[in-house]
Design a protein around this nucleic acid. Structure first.
Lengths: 181, 181
DNA sequence: ACCTGAACACCGTTCAAGT
DNA sequence: ACCTGAACACCGTTCAAGT
C-alpha cells in the first residue's frame, strides 16, 4: 500500500526524531533503509525536496479544530495553538519550518479564512491582514525560542506564557474592532 | 592594531554578505584569507565559535537609542526596531540569530531594563516579563519571515506593517496598565 | 521500478612540522 | 604567533550498470 516514496519520508521523520536536523543526513537515512545513498534520488530529487516533504507532512498533521463562526478570537487562538503544536510535535520542528517552509495553497487558504473571520467582525481588510500576520509572527517567534532552549521550563508554564502573550495581542486587536452587538 | 582574530571575524562577516550562511564555509573563508583551512583553528576553536562571534558582533552593533525615562511604549519600540535593524543589516541575519543566538549578560541586562520600565509604569512583574517576551517573539518571528521571503515587498511597506503589528501588541499591553497620571 | 558501485566535488577538524 | 601539508571521517549528488 505504502509507496516506497512514503516509506522514505516516514524513515526521514523517524530519523529526525532520533538525531535532530543537524545530523539528518542522506547517507544516514540510506543506511537506516538498508540502501546506498544514491538510491534515494529515485524518490526525491534532492535533500531539499525531502525536507520540503517533511515540512508538508508536519503542517498537514496539525489541522485547526472547529470554532464557532462568529468567534474571531477563538479562530486566532486555534490557529496559534495548532501552529505551535505542529512544531513542538517534532524535534527541531520550529527550525525546520522556519528554514524550509514555503506556504502552499492550503496555508494561504487558512490564512485567508482567518482574515475573513476578522473582516466579518468588522475589521478593515488591511487591519485584518496585519492582525493575522502579527499572530503568526508571534507564534513562530515564540515557538522558535521555546524549542531552541533546552526545555528549561516545564510545559505547563510555557503553555501559560504562550497564552498570556497571545491574549495581549488579541486584546490589542479587539481594541481596534467595533463592539460586538 | 587589529588582531588576527579580529581580521578573521571581519572576513567572515564580509563572506556572509557575499555568499550567505549556507555557503559560509571554513574552507572558503580560509581561501579568502589566503591561508590553509586548518590555520583558522588557531583563532577560533570551531566553526560554531566563529558563528557565535559573528552573532555577538551583530547584536552589539545595534544599540538601542536613548528614550525618555517614562515612555514605556517608546522603550518597547526602540528595542523592537534595533533588534529588527540588527538582523536586516546582514544577509541571513535573522536565521543566523535564530540558530546561534545564546543571550549573553548584555542581552539579559537590556531585557531587564525593559521589564523595569514596564514595572515603573505600573505593571506587575510577571505581566512585564510576558509583555517583553511577547514583543521579542514578534520581532524575531516577523523579521525571520521578512528576510526569508526574497524581499517581494518594498522596504517602506514592510516597515509600515512591522509598526502596525507592534502597535497592536503595545495597545494590548497598554490596556493592562493603570492610566498615566 | 528500484538498487548497486563507484566516483566527484566538497565539508569540518586534527596535528605534526615548519618559520 | 601563525601557518603548511597532509590526512581523517564525513557530506550531497550523479550515473552507468545491474535485477
Amino acid at each position: 500500500m505504502a509507496s516506497r516514496r512514503q516509506e522514505v519520508l516516514t524513515a526521514a521523520l523517524d530519523l529526525l526524531e532520533e538525531v535532530g536536523i543537524d545530523d539528518l543526513t542522506v547517507r544516514r537515512l540510506a543506511q537506516r533503509l538498508g540502501v546506498q545513498p544514491g538510491a534515494l534520488y529515485r524518490h526525491y530529487p534532492s535533500k531539499r525536496a525531502l525536507l520540503d516533504a517533511m515540512v508538508g507532512h508536519i503542517v498537514a498533521g496539525a489541522p485547526a479544530p472547529a470554532v464557532p463562526a462568529g468567534d474571531w478570537a477563538g479562530h486566532l487562538r486555534a490557529m496559534a495553538a495548532s501552529g505551535r503544536e505542529g512544531m513542538l510535535a517534532h524535534r527541531d520542528g520550529a527550525r525546520l519550518l522556519a528554514t524550509f517552509y514555503d506556504p502552499g495553497p492550503d496555508a494561504v487558504a487558512s490564512f485567508m479564512r482567518i482574515v475573513e473571520v476578522l473582516r466579518a467582525a468588522g475589521a478593515a481588510e488591511r487591519a485584518a491582514v496585519v492582525a493575522t500576520d502579527t499572530v503568526l509572527a508571534y507564534v513562530n517567534g515564540f515557538t522558535m525560542e521555546e524549542q531552541a532552549r533546552r526545555a528549561a521550563t516545564p510545559r505547563p508554564e510555557r503553555d501559560r506564557d504562550f497564552q498570556a502573550g497571545l491574549d495581549l495581542i488579541i486584546a490589542g486587536i479587539g481594541a481596534t474592532l467595533p463592539p460586538a452587538p
